[in-house]
Amino acid sequence: MAVVEPQPQPALSDAKLAISVVVDDDDVERQMSEEPKEEFDYTQRAQWLRAAVLGANDGLVSTASLMMGVGAVRQDSKAMIISGFAGLVAGACSMAIGEFVSVYSQLDIEMAQIKRENQREGERESINEESEKESLPNPLQAATASALAFSIGAMMPLLAASFIKEYKVRLGVVAGVSTLALLVFGGVGAVLGKGPVGKSCVRVLLGGWLAMAITFGLTKLIGSSGL
């Protein structure tokens, strides 16, 4: 009669090891199947954020400073309003032209770089080339955004002075509206760019106050000296 030898039973530690290996494999497969979450790159906002926020801030500061300077030597509201409107038009045109030239230069550089890469790597598919062209900066769009943002910023002190005939009250209202707008622009720029709101507001506000104070003081000095 044949004797059946007992088969060795797997040890408890071996079973635990096998289970842990299976679990670990499942975890790895699950982690590999999950797509990593892409974090938004806030530097992508740099171009249009600079054109919009800084354009509006420039329009506000330059127009308010110009109006304060004229108000330092002329007390009639007509002179302040005309000077502010002239500053709005001239500044918007200057911002648009400057932004157009700057972005167009950047576009030429990037197009030249793409051509060099195509020559090294060979011809690419038309779809990839069109995709690259769509991601390039648009000079006309940047110029329009800068002019529009500058005009919006410049309209604030201009509208504030349009309905006030009292000289001192008019200067105070222009300064007050400009102060409030500077705080708003600084806060909006910080929120959109995920930067510190407090520091941004203080920095923009102090810069605007300094520009208006210097313009008012120098114009008053020149006007009083009779030059």
Rank of each mutant, 00 (worst) to 15 (best):
1 M>V: 11
3 V>P: 03
4 V>K: 02
5 E>W: 07
11 A>I: 10
19 I>S: 09
23 V>N: 06
27 D>I: 10
27 D>R: 09
31 Q>N: 12
35 E>K: 08
37 K>A: 14
42 Y>W: 07
43 T>F: 06
44 Q>H: 08
50 R>Y: 14
52 A>F: 10
53 V>C: 00
55 G>T: 04
56 A>Q: 07
62 S>M: 03
63 T>K: 02
63 T>Y: 02
70 V>C: 07
70 V>G: 03
83 S>A: 15
84 G>A: 05
86 A>P: 01
87 G>Y: 05
87 G>R: 07
88 L>C: 05
88 L>E: 04
88 L>N: 01
92 A>S: 09
95 M>L: 06
103 V>N: 04
105 S>I: 07
110 E>L: 14
110 E>V: 11
110 E>K: 15
115 K>D: 15
117 E>S: 08
118 N>R: 15
119 Q>W: 09
120 R>C: 05
127 I>M: 14
129 E>G: 04
139 P>V: 01
150 F>R: 00
155 M>D: 09
157 P>S: 03
159 L>T: 09
161 A>K: 00
163 F>L: 12
166 E>R: 08
171 L>M: 13
172 G>T: 00
173 V>P: 00
179 T>K: 02
181 A>I: 02
183 L>Y: 00
186 G>P: 05
189 G>S: 07
193 G>Q: 12
194 K>R: 15
198 G>W: 12
198 G>T: 11
200 S>T: 05
203 R>Y: 04
204 V>H: 03
206 L>V: 14
209 W>N: 04
210 L>G: 03
212 M>G: 01
218 L>V: 13
219 T>Q: 06
224 S>L: 11
224 S>G: 14
